[in-house]
Amino acid sequence: MSEPLVFHYDVDGSDFTSAGQASVFVKRNLRQLGLDPEIIRRVSIAMYEGEINMVIHAEGGEADVIVTEDAVEIVLKDHGPGIADVEKAMQEGYSTATSSIQSLGFGAGMGLPNMKRYSDEMQIDTELGVGTTVRMKIRLT
């Protein structure tokens, strides 16, 4: 078993247009590891939604992508306001994004549901006023 590979990215919270950059870099690395295109697509959607969430709600954060021979794990960590009601946040269409953000086409309330849909396991640790960590796992086998 080889050492896990870790890709680390800072997600800049001030800039909507740069959101999605980390997902582009990750895709390239995963392609070069020879991962199946469908797996790469799932990782990139999950990653992208997570990035956007951090930009909208938490002024950015950090993303780690950990690759082992069995799975790709995405860990998104922010120091934002935390999620008050995780169960509600998981419902499709539920969003606390401001109307100005929604007018940009974000905040449709599909972020977390999509992250769950495209990953095999998802875990949310959140504390109000402290921040949120989302872990997603996409199995390779």
Binding site: S2, E3, L5, N29, Q32, L33, G34, V67, E69
Partner: peptide, 9 residues
């Protein structure tokens, strides 16, 4: 995959 991971590292 294992070799690719080492090379990526």
């Amino acid at each position: 995959m294992a070799e690719s991971m080492r090379m990526m590292s």
